[in-house]
Each structure stands twice: as C-alpha cells, then as structure tokens.
Design a protein around this nucleic acid. Structure first.
Lengths: 344, 344
DNA sequence: GTGCTATATGTAATCGATTACATTTCATCA
DNA sequence: TGATGAAATGTAATCGATTACATATAGCAC
C-alpha cells in the first residue's frame, strides 16, 4: 500500500535542518553551502520526498497549469498542434489542460472560471471565435494579459498571437495552379466570421486579381473547414454550368470532402479538376490522390505559442504588457498529386 | 486591472457569518438554515467569490485533475477518444490533463510523478505498452488503484479497463469479406507487443480457420497502426506472387497507407483488391474509396472509461478495489466502398 | 579583541480553504 | 419552568509548502 508520502518536515528532520533550508535547496540552491545542499539532497532521496504541488501553488499563488482551448479536438490539425504545444512545454513545470469549445457539455463552466478558480496561469487559444462578451469578461477579470492566440486570433483584439502566413499560403496555392495552366480557380472558404477564412480568401482573391484571372461569384463557395462542408461544396461544383478547373480549399479536411464527392460522381482528380488544400495534416500524403497543400509548421506554431505565453506570464508579474505584434510563421507549398495541368 | 479576488473570509464578513458556514453553504448546504444559506449565497454573488482550487486541494488532499495518457496525440483515433473523455467529464469537477507517451521531451518526468506530486487523482491510460517496471512503480506507490485502461490494456495486469470487442470486430471484417466471395484474405497487424494486435489477429485467424480459408504466412504482415506501416505493407503485397484478394487492416490509418500505395502502383481498390479497416475515424467515410471498416464507439469508450475511473477513485477512498473485469463495448461493421466482390 | 559586513540558516507567519470539536440556539416534553 | 437533545453555527487547527524577518556564524580590517 501507499506508504505515507514524505513532507518537507520529514526531510528537514532527516537532514537536521529547518524546512526553510530544504525549500531553499529546491528553489534557490545557490543560497546554501555545498555541504548543507548535499545533506539536504541526500535526505530528499532517502525519504523519497516530492514537493506537494497544491501546497506550493497555494503559497506562491500560481496554478502550475495552462489551458489550451481547442475548437474541435476531433480535427487532426488541432490535435497535432496540441501535440506540438505539449512537446514545447517539455520539462517546463506546467501541466497542460485542454478544453474543447465545441463541447457544450461543460456544465455552464466558463473558460474565465479556470482563471478565477486559480486553476491555470495562462491560456493558449486556438479558437478565434471568442465572443466580445467573453473577451470583455477576460478583460474585466484582469486575465487578458495571460492569453495568447495560436493559429486563429480574435479580430480587433490586441492580444499576442502566433499564426501562419495565411495570405502567402493562399498566394502560393493560386500561383501554383496558375503555373500549371489553370485560369478558372474556385475557392472553398472557412466559416464566415472566421479570421482564417478572411485571410485566405483575400489572399486568394488578390492573387487571382493580380494574375488577371476570371472571377465568378459562385466560385467562392462557403464552407466551414469540415469534411462535410467539402462534400457540400463538391455538390455545388458538380451542379455548375461553368465549372472551375481547379479548387483551392481552406483546409485539407475540406479538400478530402470535396475530392470524395467529385470522385464519387465520376470526376477524376486531378485529370478533370485539380485540388489544393491547406494545413498538410499527416494524412494528406496518403490520400488518393496525394494532396497538394499548403503546409503549416505545426511544431513551430506550437513552440512559438508556448514561448509567447511564458513571456506573457512573466510580463504579467512585472506589470508590463507583452508585445501584441503577431508572430508570423512561414508556410510552404507541398506539391503532390492532386493538382495537375488542366486537360482542355 | 484585476480587482483583488474575494476570499472565503471576505464572504463571511459580508454575510456576517463564520468561514465555516460559508464553506458549508458550498459543500454541505443541507446543514444550513434556509435563511443563512440565502444570506451566504447573496454574499457570494455580491463579492464574486470563487473557491480557490489550490487551497481546497491542499486541505482535502485531492488534486481535482485526471491525466489521460495517449500513445500518439497526432492520431485522429486517439484525439477523438480524448474528445469523448473530455465530454464525459462534463460538469464534473475535474480538469483533464494530457500527456503523450510518444513524446519523450518531458524532461525525465515519469508518469508516476504526476501522482506523487499530488497533481492528479487518477489516470486513464490509452497505451497498453506500459512496461512492467512502470507498473511496478505504480504498485509500489500505491496508485495502481487509480488507473484504468481504455481501448488498450496491459497484458497480465489486473486493472479495470474498457475496450472494444476486438475479436468480434475482426470476425465481422473477415466474415464480410468472405460473404463478398473472398477466400484469400491477408491481415496487417499492429505492433508486435500490442494487445490489440493480438486480439484482432487471433480473431481474424480464428474466423479464417472456421471458414476453412487458405492461410499463408506472408499474408500476416506486421505493421504498427501508422500510415507509414500501411504503405510498407502495400509494397510487400505488391511484391507477392500469390497475392491476397482482400486485406483486413488493424487500423484505418493503416488502410489509408495501404490503399495509397496500392493505387499509386496501379491496383484499384476495391476492383483489384478489397480493403477493410478498423476504428472508423471520421475521415474513413471521405476517403476514396470510402472505407469499409469496423466502428469503435468512441463516445461510449470515453464515457465508460470516465465512469470506471470515478468508481476507482471513490473505491480507493474506502479501501475497496474496483472490479477489474474488462468492460466490453460492442463494435459494428460499417459497409462502404473499399470492399467488393473479387474479380476472378 | 572589537566592530562591521556578508553569508548561511532558523523561526514563524502566511497562502485560502475544510472540518473536528466546541458552543449556542431552539424546540419539545415532563 | 427547566432539562434534554438535535440542529445550527462558530473557533481554531490543519493541509504542506514558501519566505520575510531574525539570528547565528564567519571573515576581515583596524
């Protein structure tokens, strides 16, 4: 059975020093004599002592945890970002909590409650669709300085963020299709209010305009990042009189949904229609056809988000505000098989 | 800026009662007069009081959090299970921590340390590949009663677990292929030491034997659940003289990797070779061809894992051991397009 | 040796809740 | 009315660490 866990008292007794000395050995070892330090560490080892997090947290007024707010855990893109964040914390003394905003079963618990309950020191928000009320709530409770956005960000809100170069990603995609010979290029967007939707759509439309390509209203199809929305978009394209020869999708998932529908209806990708995605999730390489897509550097996004958040937490102790200039992570185009020259 | 957060003292003063009464209003309201209860709640509202988790945890010797140990966060199957677990906790007063066992950057922090540091009250382990040493460590520290396995489980270890009916899943898959007319059925396994590998392979081989189908050594191909291993298996199959007409894969990811390779080499699925997966992740419906697969009920698995764990935690307070009889969740076959009659 | 400073260590208050035990209140009944 | 017990509330110890402040010790200059 569980032997009683040693407390700092026990270590102090064992080492013949005070609890203060033990505590110092752990957090400020340079204050101690080499000799005492040794004695204390020996006692720590022999007692199997481990600091009690709850006690430390109570005393230091920290939580030792951060929260990652994910729009949809089921989406591989997010889970891989999460893995990046997790990895980026590495040995840092923080636990990673996760909450899914899509998940409304949280029994009326607001995200801000995590802060108020002293459960977390900071938050990485992967969801740009935070309501103004919610943000006001953060502001009112003085925790907005402990929030950073990653991937998505909240419109009009001056909080630190890390994001991919979405505009450039869209340009790369359109440019690639153009270079292959495509002139009639459609786009499936994300959800209407989403910031990524906006950035990628604008990037796409700007590049299309720059290349003086034809533009039709119906070639901008509204989606929402999901597989299902890709399928719906596919049905719309099938029904068009003047079909595009290539489609740039706002996410890989959408591209999969699209290709699945097109193929099921006898159109071949890329022979009859080319498709480019966005994200480069692991599966994209293994789809049939392998998906040409804009790669987001998930590891970099995660790592930068973490360091940004740690900066914020540090800054909030010294009452300074961290920089709110967004950190932009470069993207690159991964050319595979789903986009090819059009067969006129 | 952050107004000072109210403490229980402040509420007590405001309500004109003692801190004990406030505490009771929160945790044992039935002990109080209707009148005092009202007064206290009014004071709680007016002060905006929220209980400090660290303080409560310290006093009650709980952590208020559980850990989910995931073999690979990047894998959609696991992230969707995680979503199920997350949802199942609902309003329960637990935070969900996650750790990725694949992620060796955790700076030497052992999983058992989460328990020893009083950071978690329990753990749901999705990884059956826990070493005997690790398990011994749990045992030695008296925390093995606070662990449940979900999906995977540790061989020879009597801990509570929830799992799909893997054997039946394999039977369903083989039977389906048989009914379509296939006689030469291959199998791509998971990693060698994995319990799921074992269950699914044995289920597959038993059914194949029962149906008196031919069996060849090389038709049992070793994989590891990953896309990449599916690709490698595909290459092996392509190189065979006596090719199977159908392949049952131990995971959807493997099936994708396999189909991707087969297709890239001119074989058509299902016309030339049929493929069946296992898991039914969201993407399976949208692959080309849509994947016929064995569906695991992720929500049920998550929900049962959570209730099992809560039982364990309760039981560990009363020194009883929870039941270790595995909970089996039913599976079903989802018939789509990747398996069809063979074309002799 | 005295006085002074710097360094090392100890004492005890503190973080914010919970709860055992003590006390008060109140209804009931002889 | 006073005794009795149950119900409601209060007092203060407690969980296990950290750290401000106090004290002890050592080193050095005079």
């Amino acid at each position: 059975m569980a032997q009683k866990i040693a407390r700092i008292q026990d270590v102090a007794r064992e080492a013949g020093v005070s609890t203060a000395t033990v505590s110092r050995a752990l957090s400020n070892p340079e204050l101690l004599t080499e000799a005492t330090r040794q004695t204390v560490f020996a006692a720590i080892r022999s007692t199997g002592y481990r600091v009690n997090r709850a006690a430390r947290n109570l005393r230091t007024q920290q939580a030792g945890a951060i929260l990652v707010l994910v729009p949809n855990l089921g989406n591989p893109f997010f889970s891989q970002i999460l893995a990046g964040i997790s990895a980026a914390f590495g040995s840092r003394d923080y636990s990673v909590l996760i909450a899914d905003t899509k998940d409304h079963t949280t029994g009326g618990k607001h995200v801000v409650d995590y802060f108020l309950d002293a459960q977390i020191d900071g938050m990485i928000c992967l969801d740009g669709a935070i309501s103004p009320q919610e943000l006001q709530l953060f502001e009112d409770n003085g925790v907005s300085g402990k929030i950073v956005f990653a991937c998505e960000w909240a419109h009009d809100v001056a909080l630190p963020s890390v994001r991919s170069d979405n505009v450039r990603g869209a340009q790369l995609a359109v440019r690639h299709l153009y270079d292959l010979g495509h002139r009639k290029i459609a786009h499936i967007t994300g959800p209407q209010e989403n910031v990524l939707t906006h950035a990628r759509r604008e990037g796409m439309m700007a590049e299309r305009a720059r290349l003086e390509l034809p533009a039709r209203e119906e070639w901008i199809i509204r989606g929402d990042f999901s597989l299902e929305s890709g399928r719906r978009a596919g049905e719309q394209i099938l029904a068009m009189n003047d079909r595009p020869t290539a489609v740039f999708c706002c996410s890989d998932q959408v591209a999969f949904g699209l290709m699945s529908t097109l193929t099921a209806n006898g159109l071949r990708v890329p022979e009859d229609i080319s498709v480019v995605g966005f994200d480069d999730i692991e599966l994209s390489e293994f789809y049939v056809p392998a998906l040409t897509t804009v790669r987001q550097d998930r590891r970099a996004l995660g790592a930068r988000a973490v360091s940004l958040l740690l900066d914020c937490i540090d800054a909030s102790h010294t009452e300074q505000a961290a920089t709110t200039e967004p950190v932009i992570v470069d993207v690159n185009l991964v050319v595979r098989a789903s986009a090819a020259a059009p067969n006129w």
